[in-house]
Amino acid sequence: MIEIVVNGRRRDVDPGLTLESLLAALELPPGRVAVERNRRVVPHGSFATEPVEPGDCFEVVTLVGGG
């Protein structure tokens, strides 16, 4: 297992994941979220190739009600 941070919380995940498989493991629909990896936004088109590496810091967000 490797340790990463998702939305401010540490989490152990399998090594060798891509961002796409990470989102699938988290049961998140990729079309509805936006992801920042280590302070850089990952375009939706790159989810399948974006690696998940030890120490990575992810912000996974979605759109909610606001003014």
Partner: peptide
């Protein structure tokens, strides 16, 4: 319409989506 950007809820995914 304005919308806000917030972290997804990783412990409760059952909520309906605004979208």
């Amino acid at each position: 319409v304005t919308v806000a950007v917030r972290r997804v809820n990783l412990s409760d995914r059952s909520k309906e989506s605004l979208l």
